[in-house]
């Protein structure tokens, strides 16, 4: 199997990863419920619904664990802050907000963000494209927008300035510092999604955060394509800045490109792969690689984007120019 072939299917792998992360966020609250049932030693007092949860979770976890009380504590939390086999991993945005709100640095917490920070500096906004639980919903939402557009509705056609999200990041830091509260927790979709799923399954139900998230979905659907991720998300802004000099980039092979512009259409972030313009906004989602009919797009290791290389050599523009020069 060649590397090109693998890259062409990376987008499917990405969807698999996104769905896995999302289903983990749904599974973990159920596992927590199962833990509490096991800790209570009162199986006969559970309601039929709770018994179903307990039984199914027992069936799921039995091959892997001995004691649910301790062994299931190995994986806890959400993408905002998680414990994975004893290692705490937190979102860098959580650390930024925490430092701004608390005005002092708590070293153990800083350490938990190191792995994501290093990964972002090497791989760019890879969290946005491959892990973020909100991305899954936003991409499905974008598919819905595409259907509506096909049906003739004028949905999500506007363009804003991508620099808006850096403003949101700075405003968030200022608000956090003034109010002494990590304001990002209330406006960062992956944090909201993780929490709200937990509330809905293990506690009383969805909270106010869900209303905010539904509004962002509506914003994406009505105003601008993937608008929240591109223009508002403070986490996206932070990751863009961290990943500005990322190593892993997508590049266009100008000798293969036929100027079909499918990449520009499929790019939900509104980037311009056709003119070699990926910039710091690219989240390496590989959708353009998957759609490219001539395999002109591929991953490369380079800390800078290529400058515009002109029309693709397989395209009619280039051919026309060649024939004119002859």
């Amino acid at each position: 199997m060649s590397w090109t072939l693998i890259q062409r299917h990376l987008n499917k792998l990405r969807w698999l990863v996104l769905s896995l992360v999302f289903s983990m966020l749904i599974l973990l609250p159920f596992l927590h419920l199962y833990q509490t049932y096991a800790a209570a030693h009162a199986y006969d007092l559970l309601s039929p619904m709770e018994k179903t949860i307990s039984d199914s979770m027992e069936w799921l976890t039995k091959p892997f664990i001995k004691d649910p009380a301790t062994d299931l504590n190995q994986v806890k939390g959400t993408t905002w802050s998680a414990t994975l086999f004893g290692v705490k991993v937190s979102d860098p945005l959580a650390v930024v907000g925490h430092v701004a709100a608390d005005k002092q640095i708590y070293i153990p917490f800083l350490v938990t963000a190191l792995i994501p920070i290093i990964l972002t500096m090497v791989l760019g906004r890879v969290f946005c494209g491959w892990i973020c639980p909100a991305t899954l919903l936003y991409e499905l939402n974008d598919n819905l927008a595409a259907w509506l557009r096909k049906a003739g509705l004028p949905v999500s056609r506007h363009k804003l300035d991508t620099r808006l999200k850096y403003l949101v990041l700075i405003m968030g830091i200022i608000i956090s510092a003034l109010s002494g509260i990590t304001s990002f927790a209330a406006m960062y979709p992956p944090a909201i999604i993780g929490r709200e799923i937990y509330y809905a399954i293990a506690l009383s139900g969805f909270g106010a955060g869900m209303v905010f998230f539904l509004l962002t979905l509506l914003f994406d659907l009505m105003v601008t394509r993937r608008g929240f991720c591109r223009y508002v998300c403070p986490g996206g802004a932070l990751y863009s800045l961290l990943g500005r000099f990322r190593l892993l980039r997508i590049k266009r092979d100008v000798t293969q490109c036929n100027d079909c512009a499918k990449c520009n259409v499929v790019c939900q972030f509104g980037l311009d792969p056709l003119r070699d313009d990926f910039s710091q906004e690219c989240n390496n989602c590989t959708a353009c690689i998957a759609v490219c009919p001539t395999d002109a797009l591929s991953f490369t290791l380079n800390i800078k984007d290529q400058a515009f290389q002109g029309a693709g050599h397989m395209g009619h523009l280039h051919r026309k120019k060649e024939s004119e020069s002859e």
């Binding site: 806890k76 939390g77 959400t78 905002w80 802050s81 998680a82 414990t83 937190s90 959580a94 907000g97 925490h98 709100a101 608390d102 005005k103 708590y106 002494g180 509260i181 990590t182 927790a185 209330a186 944090a191 993780g194 929490r195 937990y198 293990a202 506690l203």
Partner: peptide
């Protein structure tokens, strides 16, 4: 000011 609202304690 310290709590990041991750919900892990619960």
């Amino acid at each position: 000011s310290r709590c990041i609202r991750c919900g892990k304690c619960g």
